[in-house]
Amino acid sequence: MDMDWMAWTTPTAIFFLCIALMLAGMTVWEVVSPTVEAKGFLPMRTTRGDRLFIGLLGSAFIHLGWLAATDASLWGASAVALVWIALVIRFG
């Protein structure tokens, strides 16, 4: 099938592959060990999926904020985002 109209690039393909793998991984994790609502440093009780969503949304804004505030390499933002996601999923 011709997918030229979608204008794929390697970085965006890797990005979506990571998201798909993350969702597949979360589904398997859920089947193996169903999530329990928990209360951490976030102001509400959250499931594992909620925390992943908050983590991903937060990391999108970390990247946007980094781009708006500094000219430094975006890998810095990715490092901060990884720490943020890990914190939210473990202690959120």
Binding site: M6, A7, W8, T9, T12, F15, F16
Partner: peptide, 8 residues
């Protein structure tokens, strides 16, 4: 997905 591809 297409919009994300276009954005870069």
């Amino acid at each position: 997905m297409t919009v994300v591809n276009y954005s870069v």
